[in-house]
Design a protein around this nucleic acid. Structure first.
Lengths: 338, 338
DNA sequence: TCGATCAGTTAGAGCGCTCCAACTCTAGAC
DNA sequence: GTCTAGAGTTGGAGCGCTCTAACTGATCGA
């Protein structure tokens, strides 16, 4: 099977020879240049298909000194959030004729760092990092070599662009939604040091204060996982006064919390209402039907890619874009039964 | 910000000049050759770090005629199944010193095909496709140019390797588990034309027959989605005799089915037991607690990568590997209440 | 003292492509 | 008939690296 395969792939030269033209002309045809005669174009494409010719990207990129590709570093392939951001990046990149090469950091800063090295070595034209956990200094250094945009986490004052959601405002929406339904004892299970956790926490606290609810405000520490949500809910159930609503830092934690509440013999949303954050596909599952705060992930990805591409082509600057979240009401919230 | 950046990156030449050695020597140092004197190595690495030199992968790959990278085509970034397979691929590739470049087909054969073209143009050393929907002929053609392994779907008789789960056996396990719990009326909501759907269906039918249950066997057509599971369950609920158990083609469909059953006022597993397939993270969520058939996804990914790498280095052949599934019992199955 | 050996180093020829300047024609203007 | 413009085409010089074969000195045994 392999003998035919190994005989190295045809090159421009081979095509030129068969078509009876120069290498340069074949190159022009391959790049869809308008100044090639119909006749020449036909002969070249015929020869190319006959040989099964495929331009060698290495050689092309080396010679042209650009790759038309964007490196995308995803922190965790397991989280649907990244898939949706990537969809947006993909859409914008495709529209502008750019390729994507993806890499997964697998939640490890070491692997993330290595992936960035590979991107730089491959001379990608630009880089997008999503949910990246690398220290700011490292990103800054990379950003000095090639335009870089961060999605989901802002790095102001560095030469780096960013696209984030207004997490604090999302938290406000969650709390106000519950308030409007009559809830007064609203607890928050937070996301610890994760990306976006801090503004969500302060947003919650600020809104509680503004609504005159600071006395019943209660933050339970978590880490964006299902287990953290479950533990947080357990602590709340054991507490002196049970909250009538829980706002969690993300959907996964919300699912963990709901599970514990229901096992405790309580009914969601009648006894305890729950609001998540992210509006991942998880929240949308009918069986779960989670009320949550939506982030426009596709749009965020698309905006990041567009900003990056504009910068690469000197048609724009790297800035910090903040998107607006929105409330998605499903079945885990309802009027408070006092 | 960009003026410093644009002044093209340092090359081997620059490093050689500063270190006062030849280009070839720098090249040797960069590739960790053992036959370089301590002194030379030091001078070169010093010069390299001073300049911030980073080897240009394009040039390297072009000159060496190999890329040490494997192209991985994922059908759908949104499905956690792919993330786990990728973890396995990653682990094996890393151990052998190979890079990964990922591409998402976004469920579209057109995009999948284009991604393969990019892989070929980039001259990757090998390709792994996961859950690929491309026609066999196309994969065969690609496989003729570069070693290719398919995960999750077998293509016997072609020059392509594959790693799959014994889907029929998994279906057997599901049915026998339910049988052992006393269930006799077991329905199946299938996966239509999706990867693995067919053997799961025939495995179900075969086992039902073997257990003398062919008269109550019932296949409802679906397509691996949550909606399909819901529709299937609706049809079953409207039927003359309600099955006491439902075996769905995957976890997502199971979740859809459970939702409909519960909304119909029935209790899972007391009134209707449900078994899924895949054991995705979804099934493991406490709130869902789905009994399902596990596929060793990480191992499948790792096996695919190892087989591919061995083939690329003429240390092995492409074959068809079939892994064993296993039953994971959670809370959606229990003894039948006749 | 003289090769032989070997560790360490180097020049130079590519790898397959792009890009530029320059070339050849043909057609139109006068 | 000459000149010019422009369309179409081409040779050749790189892009930044690897790889081969050959070179340079020490080192060493005879």
């Amino acid at each position: 099977m392999s003998s035919t395969r190994r005989n190295h792939a045809p090159t421009l030269e081979d095509v030129a020879q068969i078509a009876g033209v120069s290498r340069a002309l074949v190159s022009l045809v391959m790049r869809d240049s308008p100044r090639v005669s119909i006749e020449s174009r036909r002969r070249v494409t015929d020869a190319a298909t006959k040989l099964g010719y495929r331009p060698n990207l290495m050689a092309r990129n080396l010679a042209s000194r650009k790759t038309m590709t964007i490196g995308v570093l995803l922190n965790d392939l397991h989280n649907p959030w990244f898939a949706e951001v990537t969809d947006g990046i993909h859409a914008s990149a495709e529209r502008h004729g750019y390729q994507l090469i993806l890499a997964s950091g697998r939640r490890s800063p070491r692997l993330e760092s290595r992936a960035l090295d590979t991107f730089l070595a491959s001379r990608v034209d630009g880089i997008i990092v999503a949910g990246c956990r690398l220290p700011a200094a490292r990103l800054d250094a990379v950003g000095a070599e090639v335009p870089l945009v961060s999605v989901g986490r802002a790095f102001s004052k560095l030469g780096i662009g960013s696209v984030t959601t207004d997490d604090a405002d999302g938290a406000r929406m969650a709390v106000e939604h519950l308030y409007d339904l009559g809830h007064r004892r609203i607890a928050h299970i937070d996301g610890g040091k994760g990306a976006g956790a801090s503004p969500r926490r302060t947003g919650y606290l600020g809104t509680m204060r503004r609504l005159g609810l600071e006395d019943s405000a209660q933050v339970i520490s978590g880490d964006f996982t299902e287990e953290a949500g479950a533990h947080g809910a357990q602590r709340l159930l054991r507490g002196a006064v049970l909250p009538t609503a829980i706002f969690t830092a993300n959907d996964l934690s919300a699912v963990g919390a709901i599970d514990v509440v229901e096992r405790g013999g309580l009914v969601v949303p009648d006894d305890v209402a729950v609001v998540g954050f992210d509006n991942t596909s998880l929240a949308a599952l009918n069986h779960i039907g989670l009320t949550t705060i939506d982030q426009p992930r596709r749009e965020m990805g698309a905006a990041a890619a567009t900003m990056l591409i504009n910068t690469m082509n000197d048609r724009g600057e790297l800035t910090d874009i903040v998107m607006s979240p929105s409330l998605v009401v499903r079945r885990t919230t309802g009027r408070a039964h006092v």
